[in-house]
Design a protein around this nucleic acid. Structure first.
Length: 972
RNA sequence: GGCCCAGUGGCGGAAUCGGCAGACGCAGGGGACUUAAAAUCCCCUUCUCCGAAAGGGGAGUGUGGGUUCGAGUCCCACCUGGGCCACCA
């Protein structure tokens, strides 16, 4: 027999009713500020990192951030903001293509299916997105503009004078007029800066003036400066997948993340984006955004700025230089120097040998005949080893002597030149001066090969005495010794001054220069895949690279039945992008009687996510990627209504940020790449005048992960967590005991929990509240289904406070709240509002639970109390709030009700309880009038029996009264 | 190895600016209601000592020091766990 109350909290009926209502009424559609739209409201743009629509759908870890942003969006609507809260899908990429290959379905089909499923799951959670603005990076109307932005990059160069992107056409004009020249190292200089150098001396192509170059040469020269360019670079080539892979798509074992196929480093001609030109600004502008300090630090580390100097070492010519091998250029190396980068030019006197990367171009030229075979063997070995192998060796150093020597410019010492794989071709100049006394790696290498170690730095305060360098290098700053020649002495100088002095000397002598070096490399931007954005680029018969006209965009992906990448077992096989098999009608474009072939690579998955936040502002615009006025509105502070925050809360977490998206929430896994790439694109668009601010995301918040118990069997394999039985704190799978551990929820640990199941069993409001109640948003915390019941009880208790579950009657009266109830209400409003501003939803919920527990004892809720409860609940549990709002007789949506304001006067009490300490230990509590003066407070404190007992026989040394907080009587 | 973050009851966590440690929830214990169970409601619940109780004492926020009238909070060193980078000259 089922005698459950007839009018109990029926979350399923409530939630589907209101989800349908919101959808049908487009409750959360938000207007752009055009025409007659209401511009009196301040705007607020709150954004999630949009998901990749995977086939398995969401688990309960995914919506953590979405729930948080939804609460913020709903709260901001109630505080009178025009809120932009969109959602879309980052749907290009390898997984969809792989799935499609495996199941023989077109990726467009599976992608759409996955999007539909994910959207259904999101709507089940009652998230208040403006679905009118939904976009997918795979929509032609979207990637058309991704291609357009690529053309902006292709048609721009980085002007080193203005330190910003500018149209390449301007550079062309300046080169034509001779106003600007190309310096000896390829640097762009204005004529003034070059000291009157004319275009002849500056032009690197055959030493000819710009106007003497053929069009192909001119085009090649411009290519050296474009922000998007083709270059032969070492890439991660995976022949089995038939594509290059980004570093992060390669496992620590040097295999592909998907499929576990071997990956090889090899040089290939690829599209690159010149992000390195922006290194300085990408670091500097981090100071202008409100991001977690750790995320900023990760970006700074990734960009890796170091200050130091370039130093030229002359080759020692007292020996025969190896003659060029047959067929090679017989280059004279008489004038050759080896240039190194060092952050410690102050240790130059301690440089006892040099090391070149095995791939360094000079290695072949300088190697002596006796050493040639050893060197070539080593080079071959190094090439065969993956980066991972190199690292696996840790500190053991390998290398080979080339037989050649260089001259240390400060002391004319003849020092040997080695090659070793601990020197990387990709950083600095690919060559180093080795100072084994003061660099750990050089020290280890010198120890291994018996090279001399010369101390030139002493630790501060070490009196210049010899320092034990037999086991380890001294790498910190100190004071120079043994560092002088006829012209310069660094002896006695502390490290920073020594650096400055030697750098100046090197510059005067013309053999060195102060330099800033970055770890950041240019961005490898092409993939040999089908499921990505085609490049809007054409290749002419003579190797010309021509941009597709803007008017001819989009370049649509061709329909293809077979879109598989061409796999191979041969690491030397050339890449064959799937688009190479596209029909000729797509591949070949005829213009002015010339046949061009389309670029066959596609863009990486990062491309679409680099600018989607801009498209959300104006997603259906066919004239521009975003309307300029609309962009200015959403991406800039309005200056109006900075925030609706309680007084006395200056450090509001969601105050409007200086520029860009007001709040961007996502996982810390995107701390570097996505956020760096998007910032780079945004800066280019800013430089070219297409957007109004220098940074895309004013405030960033990284939510934590949801972890869950995972179980491994005797073989260490994960077993499904939902099939585990627990007995006596031991865990069993199919009768066998298994181990429990905790890890990030997901498919690989077989511990995913579906939000669909939770919504079905407890409801979306319960799931939302539970996820927020688990702990601080930015912390990782373990999922525990058992704990959900507490939140569910809370919502049921709210329901019963409003509705008599036997009769269905509303338990609300029109009587006013008494003083105690009123005070409690305003206290809760103040606390919850403060928590909302700080994104501290766990404590906001705790406040509401506490308040609601107090209301249980009331016969009926005063209407004011009831309405306030519903409003405070609105952002957190929106379905229940809408239902109760309707039952209170309201016909409008609670989503746009004004947020309750705490009346501070109502919080004032007549008396206050103060803790009393004696010498720092709590001994009693007193109740005094709130305006009592110090004298009266102290007198009351001394009268407390327990306090008096502890003061008995002691002398009072000091009395500290902190108004409204506590009293401390110090006695001895 | 470098940089960053975190350690608080049986568990998740609270304490926002240096001022009553453990809010709120789970689990656990006791009680009410019920034929019974579920649900619901009430009470207890950091450890420990004295006390029949009221109450009171001591210890306590990873460890050891320091600053302070007062430290979970600030400083120094260390331990443990997590994240990112990792031969970047």
């Amino acid at each position: 027999m089922n005698d459950a109350p007839q009018y109990r909290y029926d979350f399923q009926a409530i939630e589907s009713k209101w989800q349908n209502h919101w959808r049908e009424h487009r409750t959360f559609a938000c207007a752009n500020p055009t025409g007659n739209a209401d511009q009196t409201k301040p705007k607020f743009y709150v954004l999630d990192m949009f998901p990749y629509p995977s086939g398995v759908g969401l688990h309960v870890g995914h919506p953590l951030g979405y729930i948080a942003t939804d609460i913020v969006a709903r709260y901001k609507r109630m505080t009178g903001h025009n809120v932009l809260h969109p959602m879309g899908f980052d749907a290009f990429g390898l997984p969809a293509e792989q799935f499609a290959v495996e199941h023989g379905v077109h990726p467009a089909v599976t992608t759409q299916k996955n999007i539909d499923n994910m959207k259904r799951q999101l709507q089940l959670l009652g998230l208040s997105y403006d679905w009118d603005r939904e976009i997918s990076t795979t929509d032609v109307d979207y990637y058309r503009w991704t291609q357009w932005i690529f053309l902006q990059l292709f048609n721009s160069y980085f002007d080193p004078v203005g330190k910003k992107a500018a149209p390449i056409s301007e550079l062309m004009k300046q080169l034509e007029s001779g106003e600007r020249v190309v310096g000896p190292d390829g640097e762009l200089m204005s004529v003034a800066a070059s000291g009157g150098m004319d275009a002849i001396s500056g032009t690197p192509v055959g030493g000819r003036k710009w106007y003497e170059l053929t069009p192909a040469q001119q085009s090649q020269l411009l290519g050296e400066y474009r922000l998007a360019y083709l270059a032969e670079v070492p890439v991660n080539w995976c022949p089995a997948l038939g594509t290059v892979l980004a570093n992060e798509e390669v496992t620590n074992e040097g295999r592909s993340e998907r499929g576990n196929h071997p990956v090889f480093k090899r040089p290939l001609k690829q599209w690159m984006l010149r992000i390195t030109a922006y290194a300085e600004r990408l670091i500097a502008d981090l100071d202008r955004v409100d991001w977690p300090e750790s995320t900023k630090q990760m970006q700074r580390n990734w960009i890796g700025r170091s200050e130091g100097a370039r130093v030229d070492f002359a080759l020692w010519r007292g020996q025969l230089i190896a003659p060029a091998a047959p067929g090679e250029d017989d280059e004279t190396i008489d004038d050759e120097t080896i240039t190194v980068f060092t952050t410690r030019p102050d240790t130059l006197f301690g440089a006892t040998y040099m090391v070149l990367a095995p791939e360094h171009e000079l290695v072949r030229d300088i190697t002596t005949p006796e050493q040639r075979s050893a060197v070539e063997t080593y080079i071959a070995q190094a090439a065969a080893r993956s980066d991972v192998d190199r690292q696996a060796d840790g500190k053991t150093k390998t290398g080979v002597f080339t037989g050649a020597y260089a001259i240390n410019p400060v002391n004319d010492q003849k020092i040997p030149i080695w090659i070793a794989d601990y020197v990387l071709m990709g950083y600095g100049t690919g060559a180093i001066m080795a100072v084994p006394a003061h660099d750990e790696r050089d020290h280890a290498f010198a120890q291994t090969f018996g090279l001399p170690i010369v101390q030139v730095i002493t630790p501060p305060g070490a009196d210049g005495g010899p320092h034990d360098l037999s086991h380890t290098a001294y790498t910190d700053a100190g004071v120079n010794v043994n560092s002088h020649n006829d012209e310069i002495s660094l002896d006695g100088l502390p490290t920073p001054e020594a650096k400055n002095k030697i750098t100046r000397w090197l510059e005067e002598k013309g053999i060195g220069k102060g330099q800033v070096q970055y770890k950041l490399r240019d961005w490898l931007f092409s993939r040999q895949r089908y499921w990505g954005e085609p490049f809007p680029i054409l290749h002419g018969p003579n190797g010309e690279i021509v941009a597709v006209e803007e008017s001819e965009l989009p370049v649509k992906l061709p329909e293809m039945a077979d879109f598989r990448p061409e796999a191979s077992n041969d690491p030397d096989a050339p890449p064959r992008p799937p688009l190479g098999r596209a029909p000729g009608s797509w591949r070949i474009v005829e213009k002015d009687g010339v046949k061009y072939e389309r670029e066959l690579n596609t863009m990486p998955q990062w491309a679409g996510s680099c600018w989607y936040y801009l498209r959300f502002c104006d997603p259906r615009n066919n004239e521009a990627f975003v309307d300029a006025d609309v962009e200015r509105y959403w991406m800039n502070p309005t200056g109006r209504g900075q925030l609706i925050a309680p007084a006395g809360n200056p450090q509001s977490a969601i105050a409007q940020s200086p520029m860009g998206v007001d709040l961007y929430v996502g996982g810390v896994e995107h701390a570097v790449l996505h956020l760096l790439y998007a910032r780079f694109w945004h800066k280019v668009l800013f430089d070219l005048g297409h957007v109004s601010g220098a940074e895309p995301f004013g405030r960033l918040f990284n939510q934590g992960y949801i972890q869950a118990a995972a179980y491994t069997d005797a073989r260490g394999m994960y077993v499904p967590a939902d099939k585990i039985e627990e007995r006596d704190q031991k865990f069993f799978f199919e009768g066998n005991q298994v181990n429990r551990e905790f890890g990030k929820m997901g498919k690989s640990l077989k511990n995913a929990i579906s939000p669909d199941d939770m919504c079905k069993e407890y409801g979306a409001d319960t799931l939302r509240l539970y996820e927020m109640y688990m702990g601080p948003l930015d912390q990782s915390k373990p999922w525990n289904t058992r704990d959900i019941i507490g939140i569910h009880r809370f919502l049921q208790r709210i329901w019963r406070n409003f509705v008599n579950d036997q009769t269905g009657e509303l338990r609300v009266s029109d009587a006013p709240a008494d003083e105690a109830q009123s005070r409690l209400m305003h206290k809760t409003i103040a606390a919850v509002t403060d928590d909302m501003e700080r994104l501290s939803f766990n404590t906001a919920i705790a406040e509401l639970i506490k308040w609601n527990n107090e209301l249980v004892s009331l016969e009926k809720l005063p209407r004011e109390v009831a309405e306030t409860m519903v409003k405070l609940l609105g952002p957190l549990a929106p379905h229940l709030a809408e239902e109760l709002w309707a039952r209170l007789g309201r016909t409008d949506s609670v989503a746009y009700q004004p947020w309750p304001a705490a009346d501070l006067r109502k919080l004032v009490e007549d008396t206050i309880e103060l803790p009393v300490q004696v010498t720092g230990k709590l001994r009693g509590r007193i109740t005094v009038p709130v305006d009592a003066d110090e004298e009266r407070i102290v007198a009351a404190a001394k009268q407390d029996a327990n306090v008096a007992a502890h003061l008995e026989g002691r002398t009072i040394r000091k009395v500290i009264v902190v108004k409204g907080k506590m009293v401390n009587i110090v006695a001895s």
